[in-house]
């Protein structure tokens, strides 16, 4: 009803760091592979070009489907990402595909090329560490750069720098099963439906209804914030803190901000109050 009703509306269920949802990534010296973090298709604009980065396939010897995306999942992610980020580029922008150690055949390259041309992007160059992928790409008429696997590993560690990357801007409804991970802040213009999740190293801003799972400051930054026009999450996580909403939903919704208090619990405040008080009990 009033802000009083919505302020203490979180129930910390696992404040202990024992159930740390996503272990901090340390500095990527390659000791612990960052399994989940790397398992995402990424789009990045760099020097007037777009880089489309595929998740690595990993070691085929110890093939574990639980930690590697199948081609279908990769292809789905590519399409989803392309259709939710139109503001990131202009028509006819050149795209470089960073295929890493993914084995791609001609048909799969064609699929990526088609998905890109659907949104007026042009695939020009393919970077790969696999000879077969290089041959397929050359046959399809793309310029190819073949790198050694070792250079690829170094590059994948380079993906997790200490500084956050530029914000990811998504204009879409994230439906059940959609899973967005980003090494920076995520802005969603649309709703997060139940069953969807956004995991960001920075803040999460939802210009819409947040009904799924949001995890801000995923690498351990407890000062990260989650904001939504309408906050009705399945679960909120900031750094190592987890909270779920109260059993009885509030009667009215306001734009709200979720943050971690000095006591180490996730709280939700009305956006206007949060900024007026400057989040005085913040960590």
């Amino acid at each position: 009803m009033t802000s009083d009703a919505s302020v203490p509306s979180s129930v910390p269920i696992a404040p202990e760091s024992s159930s740390n949802p996503s272990p901090p990534a340390e500095n990527g010296n390659g000791a612990e592979p960052l399994l989940e973090r790397d398992q995402q298709v990424r789009l990045k604009s760099e020097g007037g070009k777009l880089l489309l980065m595929l998740p690595p396939e990993g070691d085929l010897e110890e093939d574990n489907p639980a930690s590697t995306l199948t081609w279908n999942e990769v292809s789905q992610q590519i399409r989803q990402r392309l259709h939710s980020g139109e503001r990131l580029w202009q028509a006819e922008t050149t795209v470089h595909l960073i295929a890493r150690d993914r084995l791609l055949d001609g048909r799969q390259l064609q699929e990526i090329g088609d998905a890109l041309s659907e949104v007026q992007l042009r695939l020009k160059r393919v970077y790969t560490s696999r000879r077969q992928t290089a041959v397929a790409a050359a046959t399809a008429g793309y310029s190819v750069e073949q790198q050694s696997s070792i250079a690829q590993i170094n590059q994948s560690n380079g993906d997790t720098p200490q500084a956050l990357v530029e914000p990811l801007y998504l204009q879409t409804t994230l439906r059940s099963g959609a899973d967005v991970q980003h090494n920076g802040t995520v802005v969603v213009l649309g709703d997060l439906n139940p069953g969807s999740s956004v995991v960001a190293d920075g803040d999460i801003l939802v210009w819409g209804r947040l009904r799924g799972l949001a995890h801000a400051g995923a690498k351990g930054n407890a000062r990260a914030l989650i904001m939504a026009l309408q906050m009705e999450p399945t679960q909120l996580r900031i750094a190592n803190f987890v909270a779920r909403p109260p059993e009885t939903p509030p009667a009215e919704y306001y734009p709200e901000v979720a943050y971690v208090t000095a006591q180490g619990a996730i709280r939700i405040a009305r956006a206007i109050d949060f900024y007026r008080q400057g989040g005085s009990d913040r960590q």
Binding site: G177, D179, S197
Partner: peptide
Amino acid sequence: QNRTKDAV
């Protein structure tokens, strides 16, 4: 929820 049956 974010994977398919082939993940296992």
